[in-house]
Nucleic acid binder design. Structure first.
Length: 595
RNA sequence: GGUUCCGUAGCUCAGUUGGAUAGAGCAACAGCCUUCUAAGCUGUGGGUCGCGAGUUCGACUCUCGCCGGAAUCACCA
């Protein structure tokens, strides 16, 4: 409609002022609630063509449009704003059209679909997932759904950071203090058990370095020269050399962690098409580095460590292989990127990684470019903000974290408590109720995370927990469940929505308002894809739910005596529920039929 | 110190390529269930959009400078 209006206005300007006005000067926006009308033309930019006052210009354009374009039923001018009213017939026609489409997302299809790789999650195998990872996983998975909805071929990948000094830390601690403890013997989830030893390592290290610091050694030196740290470095060397004992320990502990991760992923409802392991890709990276060294793209320091000079790119020097020959984080990321491009030939590769690594990805992109991989232009760091606690950021090393598994089960428990308090679902079987509480608890959690602009840091206050009223997932789920309930009742009483024809009925203002909002769904999804922002979809679903709830409150649907009007309202409800379902699905949020 | 990001109601967050009187929720207070699910709806109070300039017909939005916060600049990941 905006496009048609723009064209009509252009024609009008040609007739009235005999001038060809560039399109970007014709600014159409939705009319604000406080004014009458549907779309508003900002006339200020047009004054140089009309050579008239804003009011007069608006009047002239308005009356010309209204008399030549039947869809415009009226207009008014406030200051420099021309508010155009679209006829109810147009809205009704539009609504009938979308009501007959089985999948509105078809409207979001892009002209040229791309192969897009989305990397998300990227856990370390030395500790369990926490709230920060939840944000990462939800964002990554939602981006996958949104981009797929627009017709792209999206591949979900995960890179598991399963090697490196930090992994050796928990291995070493387990070796020294574990007494052979296993998930089976302790009853602990594997990732939690390994995480426990990571914390123990840090605790013991702190003791050792504390002793050294008491002798006057600086903190950093103390940490590095503590015996435990030396042992960890030695273990990494052994690992890279393929020492059997170390490898066996590594494999065993990693398998514990993977079992734990799988369970958390399953609960969160996320999955992957392809999982990469740093333990495999770092070698590719190392070879790349050595090849680039031969080509003099990189240089070797006197201590035989290998570096990239990115001065020209404004990015300083970057270490790529340590003096002892072991790889760093960047090394494996180079290898992973090249491997992925070989395997998928992607157009775009999105890295869902926290904004603390902005610099890392600038360097990665520049390095690949320097090495001659022009496709590195397609790499995009989807940089999201940190989840902080009221006291500041979470600290895995000290165990000050909001654990993912704990939080998920707390949410489900809360959903149960709230439901019970409200006296709902009392006639349901336990298994059915469990399933509903799971959907609601996770819906609350996921929505809480996804409604926030991904770029921004966000605060999570554990003591306040997550709400179930207002701008929340359960609110939207509730709206959906209400609509489903209406349809169940309609079935029982033999009233069907598809039997009636509502041509010619006059819709109320609230009903038109609902249609206007329904219309925004597909644009919102496209915008969310372009801006990589699930939050836009989340906030849209909330807005729609609010609007529908007002409609639901003000009007009777099944109690409406006029059959045409009744079917219209049923159709409005049907399209609303379909959009809510579809929109929330893009966020990875499931909808309960009852709650 | 360099670079990047952030600062909107008591709290958590929206706010489109610069457009009209800056919006929601939570919390507080006051109403609405004999009627399709009250996890809902309606209303009241609450703002120097960090501060100050500049550009513009018009700035929460763009530019510059301050103030405050965060991240990063590792032979950590």
């Amino acid at each position: 409609m905006e496009r048609i209006l723009k064209e009509k206005i252009r024609e009008t300007l040609k007739v009235l002022y005999n001038s060809d006005v560039p399109e970007d000067l014709i600014q159409i926006q939705e009319t604000r609630k406080d004014f009458r009308g549907d779309f508003t033309l900002v006339v200020f930019p047009l004054l140089r063509y009309s050579k008239n006052t804003p009011e007069k210009t608006g009047e002239n354009i308005g009356s010309h449009i209204a008399s030549t374009f039947p869809a415009v039923s009226g207009f008014n001018v406030v200051k420099g704003f021309l508010n155009l009213e679209i006829s109810d017939e147009w809205w009704m026609d539009y609504f009938r059209k979308i009501a007959s489409e089985s999948d509105l997302l078809q409207r979001c299809q892009v002209k040229s679909p791309e192969v897009i790789l989305v990397e998300y999650s990227s856990p370390n195998t030395n500790k369990p997932l926490h709230l920060g990872h939840i944000r990462n996983n939800l964002l990554g998975f939602s981006l996958f759904r949104i981009l797929s909805a627009c017709g792209h071929k999206v591949i979900k990948t995960n890179i598991v950071n399963d090697r490196g000094i930090h992994i050796c830390k928990s291995m070493l601690a387990w070796q020294k203090y574990g007494n052979g403890e296993t998930p089976a013997s302790s009853g602990m989830k594997g990732d939690h058990l390994v995480g426990k030893y990571y914390v123990i390592f840090e605790k013991e290290l702190k003791l050792q370095s504390g002793e050294l610091m008491a002798k006057g050694i600086a903190e950093e030196d103390a940490r590095n020269s503590a015996p435990l740290m030396k042992d960890a470095r030695e273990m990494l060397l052994k690992w890279e050399a393929g020492n059997k004992e170390v490898m066996d320990l590594w494999k065993m502990m990693n398998s514990w962690v993977y079992a734990g991760f799988d369970e958390t992923y399953r609960k969160l409802g996320v999955d992957f098409d392809k999982i990469y392991y740093e333990s495999e890709t770092y070698k590719i990276g190392r070879d790349l580095v050595l090849t680039a060294l031969d080509k003099h793209i990189l240089y070797r320091n006197t201590d035989s460590s290998i570096w990239a000079d990115l001065d020209a790119e404004g990015l300083d020097q970057k270490l790529l292989l340590r003096s002892d020959g072991t790889a760093v984080y960047m090394t494996q990321d180079l290898g992973t990127a090249v491997l992925r491009h070989e395997e998928y030939g992607f157009n775009r590769c999105l890295y869902v990684v926290g904004n603390e690594q902005n610099y890392h990805f600038q360097v990665l992109k520049a390095l690949l470019k320097k090495m001659g991989y022009d496709w590195s232009d397609g790499l995009f760091h989807f940089s999201y903000g940190m989840v902080e606690l009221p006291e500041g950021r979470m600290k895995s090393r000290e165990g000050i974290i909001v654990d993912a598994d704990d939080l998920i089960s707390e949410m489900i428990t809360t959903a149960r408590d709230v439901s019970q308090e409200l006296g709902k679902l009392s006639d349901f079987a336990e298994a059915e109720k469990d399933e509903i509480f799971r959907k609601i608890g996770l819906g609350a959690l996921k929505y809480f995370i996804l409604k926030v602009d991904p770029k921004k840091n966000m605060t999570f206050n554990p003591s306040e927990s997550i709400d179930f009223n207002g701008n929340t997932g359960p609110f939207i789920q509730y709206t959906y469940a209400r609509i489903k309930s209406v349809f169940r009742k309609a079935d029982q009483t033999g009233i069907r929505s598809d039997t009636g024809d509502y041509t010619g009925i006059k819709a109320g203002e609230k009903e038109i308002a609902l249609i206007r909002l329904l219309r925004k769904f597909t644009d919102t999804v496209s915008e969310a894809a372009n801006n990589y922002s699930p939050a836009l979809v989340a906030n849209y679903c909330y807005e729609l739910s609010k609007e529908y709830n007002q409609f639901y409150h003000d009007f009777s649907i099944l109690g409406e005596p006029d059959p045409a009007r009744r079917s219209f309202r049923l159709d409005l409800s049907k399209v609303t529920s379909a959009i809510l379902y579809s929109g929330m699905n893009l966020l990875g949020i499931e909808m309960p039929e009852r709650m």
